[in-house]
Simulated assay, not measured.
Amino acid sequence: MDSAAFAAGLRRDAADWDARGALPAEIVKAVAHAGFLATDRPPEELGRLCADFGGVCSALRALITVQGMVTAAVRRWGTAAQRAHWLPALARGDVLAGFAATEAGAGSELAAVATSADQEAGQVRLRGRKLWVTFGQVADVFLVLATCAGRPVTVLVEAGRPGVTAEPVRGQLGLRAARLAHVRFDGVLVPAENLLAPPGFGLSHVTATALDHGRFTVAWGCVGMAEACLHAAAGHAADRVQGGVRLAEHQAVRALLGRCLADAVAAREVCVRAAALREAGDPEAVAATVLAKYVAARAAAAVADRAGQVLGAAGCAEDSLVGRFFRDAKVMRLIEGADEVAEQQLGGYALRWRP
C-alpha cells in the first residue's frame, strides 16, 4: 500500500489522538497490516514513508521509529535464534517494542545508566527505572540498556514478566499520542539468551545501531512536519482576506513563506543525501544522518513557528496541525541526540570534511 495515501486517510483523526493522548490500538494494527512496521526497506523509501507519516502525526511516525530501532538492533546483533524469534513478530505487529535507555541521570550521556543486569545461573536480573519510553504503556518487549559487571549490555525484556511496571506519562509537551511511559524493572528475571550481543557491546554497538536508525527516521519525520506546516500556512495566506487584501499579497507574509520553503526543501535534500550514503554503505553515512536529523529538526521547529505567525489565532486552536507540530518539533530537537550534542559531533566531522 502507498504510504502517502495511507497516511492521508488518517489525517482528520490525528488531532483527536493528540487530544486523547493515545494512538488507538486499531490504528497500530492497521499500520502493521499494511506492512509498514519493522520493514527492511531501502533507506530513501523508508525515509519517504516516515515523512508521509510525520506530516500527519508525530506519534504515528514514532511508532515506525521505535519498532524499527529495536528491529535494526536485533537484525544486526542478534543470534540466529533471536532473529528467527523476534523479527517476524516485530514485522507483523504481533509484538510492539519499546526502547528503554534514558534514565534520570543518563540522557545525552547514556554511558551513565544505573540500571543493572546481574547474571545469575543462566538468568539475568534487571533492576532500574527508565524514562520517556515511547509506546512504553503498550509495548510487549523492551530493549533495555543496562550495565553488567561494569560493562554496558542490552537485554530484551518481555513486558509481562513479574517486576515490570509501566507508569503512564500524560500531558507532556509533544508526542502526546505516543503512549509514553516511565518503566520500572524491579528484580526482573529473564533468560540469559535474552542478552543481545555480548557484554561490552550494549552501548557502542547495539544502542548505537538503534539510535542511528532512530535519527534517520526522525529526520524524515521532521521533513514531513515542515512540509505540512508550509502547506497549511500557504493555504491560509492564499485564502484569508483581511482589510480587503489577501494575506498572500503582503510582502512580510510572502517573506515568511519563502523562508519556510527554503527550510523545508533544504531539510528534504539533506535527508535524501543521508539516504543515498546509507544505501551505498558509505562510512560517511553516520555523520550524514546526524546532520540530517539536526537540520530537519530545526527546520520543522522554524517552519512551525513561522506558520503559526501566518495563521495567527487559527494556529492556536485546539485542533490546529500547526500548533500540534509546534509542540512536537521542540521534542524533535531533543530526542535521538539534542541539538547541542549533534553540533559537537558535526564540529568533529567538519574538521575532517572535504568536498
Rank of each mutant, 00 (worst) to 15 (best):
A81S: 14
L60R: 09
A89V: 01
T154R: 08
S116E: 14
G54Y: 04
V74T: 01
T65Q: 14
E158N: 05
G98A: 10
Q123D: 13
V56I: 13
A19G: 08
A101L: 10
G122Y: 07
A139G: 08
V153W: 09
T71N: 10
L37Q: 04
T147H: 14
A81K: 08
K130V: 02
G93Y: 02
Q82P: 08
A121Y: 05
V153M: 04
P88V: 01
E120G: 00
A38P: 12
P42Q: 02
V113F: 08
R151V: 00
A146I: 10
E120Q: 06
A159L: 11
A72G: 10
E26F: 07
R76D: 08
T65E: 15
F36C: 05
L156S: 08
L49E: 12
L23S: 04
D94I: 07
T154S: 13
A72H: 03
Q82N: 06
E44W: 06
R75C: 06
R41T: 14
R125F: 06
F99E: 01
L145T: 09
V138F: 02
I27H: 04
W132F: 15
I27Y: 03
G47S: 00
A72C: 03
G68E: 07
D40G: 07
A19T: 12
R129C: 10
A38L: 01
L37P: 09
G35D: 11
S116P: 04
G55E: 09
A32Q: 10
S108G: 13
L96W: 04
L49Y: 01
P152N: 00
F142T: 02
H33T: 11
G55Q: 07
A51I: 02
I64Y: 06
T115R: 01
V31H: 07
A19V: 13
A89N: 09
L37W: 09
W132C: 10
R76Q: 15
G55V: 09
A111G: 15
G54L: 06
V141D: 08
W132M: 14
R129S: 11
V70C: 11
L131M: 13
L49I: 07
A139M: 02
G55S: 11
A121W: 01
L96Y: 03
E44K: 04
S58Q: 13
R125C: 11
L49K: 10
K29A: 15
G55K: 07
A38Y: 02
G128L: 06
A97P: 11
P42H: 04
L87H: 08
W132H: 12
G54K: 08
